Amino acid sequence: MNANTVTGEFTFTDAPAHWADKADKSFSSLHQLSPYIGKLKPNIARELIVTYTQPGQLVVDPFCGSGTVPLEAILTGREVIASDSNPYAFVLTKAKLSPPASLTDALSQLEDVYEKSTGRSDESFISAPDWVRSFFHPDSFRELIKFADECLESRNWFLLSCLLGILHHQRPGFLSYPSSHLVPYLRDKKYPKSEFPEMYEYRALLPRMRAKLTRAFKSSTESPTSSCVVKKSSIEGLILPGMVDAIITSPPYMNALDYRRDNRLRLWILDRSTQDYFTEPTDKAKGLETMVSSLVNHALSSLKPGGIVILVVGETVIRKRTKTHPSRSYIDALLSTGIFRLISAIRDNIPDIRRSRKAGAATKAEHILVFQKIDDQDPSLSNLSQAGAAVAV
């Protein structure tokens, strides 16, 4: 049974118990194409989409990340515009929304791209920085970087995403020396070469990619028929049409996750200027303020009257000696316009299994906030309470 928690003027309902369930085989295996920190569970995304939107409506996710919301939206018959400034997010979302028609087609593409990659020069291999080389056997690295370059040149985002999905781990099906899967750190102390020599041997790309493609199509659904657009853009530079039905997104919140650092090896494959460590746009309060104001402006200018904004955002973040309240920032910004009302507020505890680091203390709970744009022609349109909490404003 759900319980209510009063926070400020708002009453939050605890997340339904079934949100903690693992996604079953009815969810596409494309969701597992490549790991991504802090991603939304597909069962939660689907429930929000089918509760607050209708088939054929236009759903926008301006911080699409791993593509969970766009994929669930398109699989449930919605039109989609997805965007993210992160190159990894862009490639991964493109791959999920436009996969090959079948496993047979994907395997055929693999053989063709791999054959072409063998004829490429060693330029990328030779110029790679030491911190990247340290993860791989030289022969494995030469093979994978040539394959990546061929995927980039041919814009084969699906094969490229599958490559990124097997880039690093200690398991035999991955390409690196023993390392963590989600965040790239070598695990040579736990698996020293003297005791585990087999983990430091050459790992061939082609058989591992074939196995990865087979897993990707294990429970994937038919190719989506709804239209989708994926853009590589910051929220500030994003251009949207004027008739959006819903904005459903999980925006970055200040100081909570290090998307760039924790994806640095995959990002280097996509952008060779990537450094071993660099700062996040949301490390500073100004970055968060810019994102909040840009999202509000898009909601004001592009969302239809009666349209929905759903935000999945951290409740409170305590990190790097700084305490922030990103949920409160978005609530205040949207309600201050006088054009939006908060019609549902849900609090969902984040278990350790969903953290990028098991002991991470950045944020312990997320808020799922559902706003509706006021329709002056139909004030009763905001009666959408079937999945939300009572809100005492």
Rank of each mutant, 00 (worst) to 15 (best):
G237R: 10
S176D: 05
S140G: 01
P172A: 05
K190W: 14
S180G: 12
G237H: 14
M209I: 10
E198P: 01
R260F: 12
R203D: 04
V317F: 09
V393I: 03
I350G: 13
A101W: 02
M199R: 10
S127C: 03
P138R: 02
H31A: 01
Y191R: 02
L206G: 06
L159V: 02
L384A: 12
R187Q: 10
E72C: 10
F136N: 00
T11V: 11
E236V: 15
P138C: 02
T290E: 14
P62C: 09
G388L: 10
I239N: 11
G173I: 09
R203T: 02
A204I: 02
E366L: 06
K364N: 03
T316H: 13
A387T: 08
K218N: 10
K193A: 04
N4C: 06
Q54D: 10
S356Q: 03
F217E: 09
H298D: 05
K232D: 03
Y253F: 15
L369H: 01
V91Y: 01
S134N: 12
F135L: 03
M254A: 15
V312N: 15
A89I: 09
V296A: 12
M209H: 08
G165N: 07
Q32T: 14
D271S: 01
C162N: 02
E72G: 08
K190A: 08
P351H: 14
Y185H: 15
W19E: 13
K232W: 04
R155Y: 01
F90P: 11
V229L: 13
I81M: 09
H325C: 15
S302V: 08
Y277P: 00
R260M: 12
K358V: 13
L103Q: 06
L238N: 14
T93S: 03
L30H: 06
P138Q: 03
S83N: 12
L303H: 13
E195G: 10
D21V: 11
V132R: 04
I343T: 11
A23L: 14
A299I: 09
L48S: 03
I248T: 06
N43T: 08
T5S: 01
W131D: 09
V229C: 02
D112F: 08
I44T: 11
S29L: 06
Q377M: 14
V313C: 14
L103M: 12
Y114F: 14
R357A: 11
V183I: 11
A73S: 15
G287S: 05
E111Y: 06
S223D: 05
I343W: 09
L270K: 04
L334T: 02
P62D: 09
S134W: 00
R266L: 02
T324R: 05
L257P: 06
G237V: 00
L175C: 08
L160W: 05
E315T: 03
T274P: 04
V309M: 13
G119Q: 05
A73V: 09
S294L: 07
K146H: 00
D84I: 02
R187D: 07
